Lab assay of single mutants.
Amino acid sequence: MQNSHSGVNQLGGVFVNGRPLPDSTRQKIVELAHSGARPCDISRILQVSNGCVSKILGRYYETGSIRPRAIGGSKPRVATPEVVSKIAQYKRECPSIFAWEIRDRLLSEGVCTNDNIPSVSSINRVLRNLASEKQQMGADGMYDKLRMLNGQTGSWGTRPGWYPGTSVPGQPTQDGCQQQEGGGENTNSISSNGEDSDEAQMRLQLKRKLQRNRTSFTQEQIEALEKEFERTHYPDVFARERLAAKIDLPEARIQVWFSNRRAKWRREEKLRNQRRQASNTPSHIPISSSFSTSVYQPIPQPTTPVSSFTSGSMLGRTDTALTNTYSALPPMPSFTMANNLPMQPPVPSQTSSYSCMLPTSPSVNGRSYDTYTPPHMQTHMNSQPMGTSGTTSTGLISPGVSVPVQVPGSEPDMSQYWPRLQ
């Protein structure tokens, strides 16, 4: 039975679970980093996980050691009161100082060594604690504590007292930064006198190289990059290397530039699409467009005044059976039934097929058609009795279509119309 579990990581490298990497692998990681390889490249070359490479390099940059820390136990506290007071002093002298600059000053002034120097995250935590204590304490208590930490007896009751030896409130920041720059020169002199001055200088240079600022491109470089971006948004590694040799930039910087440029292009394309949609959409909808001609068919113009009344309900007709019959029939052209047409008796099958359309009241044959006459024609229609054979009435077949029909004066039988409509 094995005491430890061995495995293979996602890159194909072998590791022992819970145990640190061998010293030979750690040394190779540092050597590759000094030669300029990126952590992701080191991870692929040595088949070590990216997190492990970053952790080893980060500890090497901070402490200069590649040895693993002790497994188990607690780390001794490195942010001692003396170190905290120095950090507060540096922050007062130059409020814009960075944590890694404070760390360098602690090393250069001999406050800490490589073994007990606090990390950048520890210094940031100390600065946050100082800021929170400043908010919790009152103004007087804060000034007393700062005077105690600074070891001075001057008056701290006013704002300019934060910067000793100065009279203009805006000047101390520059003086403090100048003092810090002077301390940086002392850093070089002190570290050069040490035993491991060369190694420390190499480590600091490598650290500065990794902690780079934003790349500033010249106009020629920007023009070359934009020209390549117009050709393709995704250049391959050969195109990037050719462009890197042409404009004297690292291939990694060119790759990052193209990634950022593609993101910018997507944002601009989104804005262009929004403007295009806004320009195509009308600002207001016309009133006429809300009524579609496919839904509402136009009603033909009436030929006679009587045809303006298109349904039985508008003429005072309360018989719903006839109203439904007229509205359900398709529109037909106007025609006239003459008196000489043969009077065919209704076929029983045809009569039964339209039995649902006729009223059940037996008085329908005896009703006159003056009910369908509009009010303004009552006088004219009353002067001509319906009993004469020459009287013409208008029957409504569908809305908007008038059918003048000659009705025999002897017997106005409704059943004569249905064979004609089939």
Rank of each mutant, 00 (worst) to 15 (best):
2 Q>D: 10
2 Q>A: 13
3 N>Y: 12
6 S>L: 06
7 G>I: 13
7 G>A: 14
7 G>K: 05
8 V>A: 03
10 Q>D: 04
11 L>Q: 08
11 L>W: 09
12 G>T: 02
12 G>M: 03
13 G>V: 02
14 V>F: 10
15 F>M: 02
16 V>M: 06
18 G>N: 01
18 G>L: 01
18 G>A: 01
19 R>P: 01
19 R>Y: 06
19 R>K: 15
21 L>C: 03
21 L>F: 03
24 S>D: 11
25 T>D: 06
26 R>C: 01
27 Q>G: 11
27 Q>S: 14
28 K>M: 07
31 E>T: 13
31 E>L: 10
33 A>F: 10
34 H>F: 14
35 S>L: 06
37 A>G: 04
38 R>L: 05
38 R>A: 05
42 I>H: 01
43 S>V: 05
44 R>P: 03
44 R>H: 14
46 L>W: 04
46 L>T: 09
46 L>F: 01
46 L>R: 01
47 Q>R: 06
48 V>R: 03
48 V>S: 03
50 N>W: 15
51 G>F: 02
51 G>S: 04
52 C>G: 13
53 V>H: 01
58 G>M: 14
59 R>W: 04
60 Y>S: 01
61 Y>V: 06
62 E>C: 06
63 T>P: 01
68 P>T: 03
68 P>V: 03
68 P>C: 01
68 P>A: 13
70 A>N: 11
71 I>R: 05
72 G>D: 01
73 G>V: 00
74 S>R: 00
75 K>L: 08
75 K>F: 05
77 R>V: 04
77 R>M: 04
78 V>W: 01
79 A>N: 06
80 T>W: 01
80 T>V: 13
81 P>Q: 13
82 E>C: 13
83 V>W: 02
83 V>I: 15
83 V>E: 01
84 V>E: 04
84 V>F: 04
85 S>I: 14
85 S>C: 13
85 S>T: 12
87 I>S: 06
87 I>A: 15
88 A>R: 07
91 K>Y: 02
92 R>G: 10
93 E>Q: 11
93 E>S: 14
93 E>T: 14
94 C>G: 13
97 I>D: 10
97 I>L: 12
97 I>K: 06
98 F>L: 06
98 F>T: 09
98 F>V: 15
98 F>D: 02
101 E>C: 08
102 I>K: 03
102 I>H: 05
103 R>Y: 05
103 R>S: 11
104 D>T: 13
105 R>T: 11
105 R>M: 12
106 L>Q: 01
107 L>A: 07
107 L>G: 09
108 S>W: 08
109 E>R: 09
109 E>Y: 13
111 V>M: 15
111 V>Y: 15
111 V>N: 12
112 C>H: 15
114 N>Y: 13
114 N>G: 09
114 N>F: 12
116 N>K: 04
116 N>Y: 12
117 I>V: 06
118 P>D: 00
119 S>A: 06
119 S>M: 02
119 S>D: 04
120 V>Q: 03
121 S>R: 01
121 S>N: 15
121 S>F: 00
122 S>N: 00
123 I>T: 15
124 N>I: 03
124 N>T: 05
125 R>G: 00
126 V>Y: 06
129 N>T: 11
133 E>R: 07
135 Q>G: 09
135 Q>R: 10
136 Q>I: 09
137 M>G: 12
137 M>H: 09
137 M>N: 12
138 G>P: 14
139 A>K: 12
139 A>F: 11
139 A>T: 08
139 A>P: 08
140 D>C: 10
141 G>I: 12
141 G>D: 07
142 M>R: 12
142 M>E: 09
143 Y>C: 12
143 Y>P: 08
144 D>R: 07
146 L>P: 10
146 L>M: 07
146 L>R: 06
148 M>Q: 08
148 M>V: 09
